[in-house]
C-alpha cells in the first residue's frame, strides 16, 4: 500500500518534470509523457466510447489538447487528474456527437466483435459453444452499458473497469464524492433493470459467482 502510494507520487513527480521540459520545447519529453499515460487514457476512452478505433482517436485528441495547454497548466495541480478529465470530457463529447448513430445491438454484435479489435487483438479459438455463450454475455453487457447517459457511463467505467477510487473520480470530474456515488448508484439501477429484462426474456442466464 505504502509502496504503491510512493510509486504514484514518483510518477506524478516525473510527469511534472516532463511537462516542464515540454514547455521548454523538448519533444522527447512529450513522448515520455505520452508513454506514461497512453494506456490508461486509451482504455478509459475505450470503456466510455466502446470502440477501439474511436478510443484511439479520443486518446490522440487528449494528448494534442495536453500538448497545446501544457503552458497554462497550473503547476500545483495534479497532472493525472487533469489528463483523465480531458479524456472523460472528450469521450463524452464523442458519445454525444454519436447520438444519431445506431447503438450496438445483438444483431450486429458478432460483426462488430470481429472488426472492432485493432490489428490482431487476441481472440483465442476455443470450444464454439462456450465461445458463443461468452460472446452473448459480452454483447449483453455492452448493450446494457448503452442505457447509461454518457456521464453515468464514464463514472461507472472509471470505477469498475479502471480502478479509480471514488475520491479520484470526484477529483477528475470536480464534483463531490456524494455526487459520484449517486451517479454510480443510478447507473447500477439502470443496469439492473436492463439485465433483469434479459433474464426475464429467458435469453440470457448469468451465473453469479
Amino acid at each position: 500500500m505504502v509502496s504503491s502510494k510512493r510509486g504514484k507520487a514518483k510518477k506524478a513527480m516525473e510527469a511534472h518534470v516532463l511537462a516542464e521540459r515540454v514547455c521548454q520545447g523538448d519533444l522527447s519529453a512529450f513522448q515520455g509523457l505520452v508513454d506514461q499515460f497512453k494506456k490508461k487514457v486509451y482504455f478509459l476512452a475505450y470503456d466510455v466510447v466502446g470502440d477501439h478505433h474511436e478510443a484511439e482517436d479520443v486518446s490522440q485528441e487528449v494528448f494534442i489538447k495536453v500538448y497545446r495547454s501544457l503552458g497554462s497548466f497550473r503547476r500545483d495541480a495534479k497532472m493525472s487528474s487533469w489528463i483523465y478529465q480531458i479524456t472523460v470530457n472528450s469521450a463524452i463529447d464523442l458519445l454525444r456527437k454519436r447520438k444519431a448513430k445506431p447503438s450496438v445491438t445483438l444483431e450486429n454484435f458478432d460483426h462488430i466483435e470481429l472488426q472492432d479489435a485493432p490489428r490482431g487483438a487476441a481472440t483465442a479459438a476455443v470450444d464454439p459453444e462456450s465461445s458463443a455463450e461468452a460472446a452473448l454475455l459480452q454483447g449483453r453487457i455492452e448493450e446494457a452499458l448503452h442505457v447509461l447517459t454518457p456521464r453515468e457511463r464514464a463514472v461507472f467505467a472509471m470505477r469498475h473497469y479502471n480502478d479509480f477510487q471514488i475520491s479520484e473520480i470526484a477529483d477528475v470530474l470536480e464534483v463531490s464524492s456524494g455526487t459520484v456515488k449517486s451517479l454510480l448508484f443510478r447507473a447500477l439501477q439502470k443496469l439492473r433493470r436492463k439485465l433483469a429484462f434479459y433474464r426475464g426474456s429467458g435469453s440470457w442466464e448469468v451465473n453469479d459467482e
Partner: peptide
Amino acid sequence: GLRATLQDMKKRERTEPDPAFWEGYWERL
C-alpha cells in the same frame, strides 16, 4: 439484486490491442 448486477458487469472483458499497436502509437500520434 444490485450486488448481483455489479458482479455481472464485472464479467465484462475488453480485447487488448497487440503490442504492435502500442509500439506504433507515438508514431501515429
